[in-house]
Structures are given as structure tokens and as C-alpha cells.
Write a protein that binds this DNA or RNA. Structure first.
Lengths: 125, 125
DNA sequence: AATAAACGGTCTAAAATGTAGACCTTGGGG
DNA sequence: CCCCAAGGTCTACATTTTAGACCGTTTATT
């Protein structure tokens, strides 16, 4: 029996729908995980290797949130050793489109941003 | 004279351009700030009021990063009390388009996500 | 036979990050 | 003389993230 945490209480009743959604996607790892799952189903450790520098705990936690919000499904095959597969839901796949736009923008403007950083550094003498 | 921090060293040489960009906008506040600036120039305190629940420090820090990366300009009018205006650059405005797509998606699918959360809770007995 | 590795996690301690709120500056109004 | 304004910075505290040990079971290696 665990205590009720704040995060469990905010399931309902977020004042601003956009904030509500962006707060979930706009963390360190969610976008990366969704991008990794875009090509298809992956297992837990495969996902870890794919992303490279995420800790088990954060992968586990973020996947749980994504599952909770309906972006991915978690399927446990009770073999031994256990196999767990993560797959995008239709909702998750529908999110891919705006996300890919974002990724495309990032790719297209990366050089501009790097240039801005250099110029900023120079301006700071 | 300040010590050289890690954050100052990563100005160059990010292995993955997409990660590089997403790591900057995929934090708690950047998207919210850019959205707040979308309609036009705002002063520091106006921005604070607009966002509502951001601390001064995080607003200051995030604005500095956005300025560094070329998304916004900071204009200081040396009056007293000082006036500081933040405005989107062309780069920042160009980012608005993919971001609005994301916002539109969030708005459109918010109900589905809330429903998923409820169903998840129910499934957890 | 003992050892190690793989799977998908959880747990804990320590490090990093975020928050709230005091404080700073400079000039004007009461 | 004291306080207020704006746009921050600084400090102490709270929360979040990380690194890494550990778990239980089975197969592979030595």
C-alpha cells in the first residue's frame, strides 16, 4: 500500500489541455523514446541500447507514463527470462506526424542554432 | 571570472543534431515561453505573469538559453527602472510552425489521453 | 560444479536541478 | 526616511535524475 502521490492525483483536472500534454511530452526522454519506437516494436533493453544514455529507471518510468497516457502498449510474455515489448498505439503513431515536423525543423535549422551559439559566445567577449 | 562549466563547453560538437535541438526545447519551460512570445514582444515580468507558475530563476535561465540559441532577442532599455523586452527572432518565428502543429495535436487529442489515463487507473485495480 | 550473462525491472544513495523567497540597483513619490 | 518599481541574482531547501547494486530464473561458458 503506497501513499497517494501528487502525480497520481493529477490524472484528471488539468486546467490547460496544452500544458497538460506538453508537460508529459516535453521532458528529457519522452520524445526520444517515441522516436525510437517509430520504426516498430522494441523490447526494453533494445530500447535502452537504441537511446544509449538513458538510465533503466528513467526508461522504466517514462515508458510507464507513456503507457498511462496511451502512447504505447506494454506486452509482457511470461517466458523466462521475461520478454516485454513496447509498441506505439494508434494515438502514439498519430503523434509521430507533428513530432517528425519538429525533428525535420531541428535537422534543418541545426546549423543556424550552432552559429547563433558561437556568435553569442563571441558577443560575451 | 567564472569557472568553465560543462554547459559552456557543449556549445559545439553535439553528436546528434536532433538530440542537440530537442534537448534544448524539450525542457519544462522553453515551449511555453516561445508560445507566450508568439503573439509579440513581452517584458520580463509580463512573461512571468503570462506563464503564471514559472520562477524568476528559470525564466531568466531559459530566456538566456533561448537567446543563446538564437530563438529570441533581448533588448535592454537602460531606463530606470530598467525595461527589458524579449522578442522572437526569425528563427524563433520559424519554429512556431512545427510547434503550433504540436499544440494543435495536443489540443485535438487531449480527451483521448485523459481517457487513457482513467482506463489505466482502472486496469491497475 | 561454479560462474557468468541475459532479461526487465526495483531500490538506494548521491548528484544535479528546480523552487521560493530574500536581496540588489537606481531613481521618484509620499 | 522609507518604500516601490523592474529585472534580475543569490541562497537555502525540495524535488528529480543518475549510477549502480540487487533480484529471480534459466541457459551458456569454463
Amino acid at each position: 500500500m503506497t501513499a497517494i502521490t501528487a502525480s497520481e492525483e493529477i490524472v484528471l483536472e488539468q486546467p490547460c489541455p496544452i500544458r497538460d500534454v506538453l508537460d508529459r511530452i516535453g521532458d528529457q526522454w519522452s520524445l526520444l523514446i517515441l522516436e525510437a519506437l517509430a520504426p516498430g516494436t522494441l523490447r526494453f533493453n533494445a530500447l535502452m541500447r537504441e537511446i544509449g544514455d538513458i538510465s533503466k529507471q528513467m526508461l522504466s518510468r517514462t515508458l510507464k507514463q507513456l503507457e498511462q497516457d496511451g502512447f504505447v502498449t506494454r506486452t509482457l510474455y511470461p517466458e523466462v527470462p521475461p520478454r516485454v515489448e513496447y509498441t506505439l498505439t494508434p494515438l502514439g503513431r498519430s503523434f509521430l506526424e507533428p513530432m517528425q515536423q519538429l525533428v525535420a525543423w531541428a535537422d534543418a535549422h541545426h546549423r543556424t542554432i550552432v552559429a547563433a551559439r558561437l556568435q553569442y559566445q563571441a558577443s560575451q567577449t
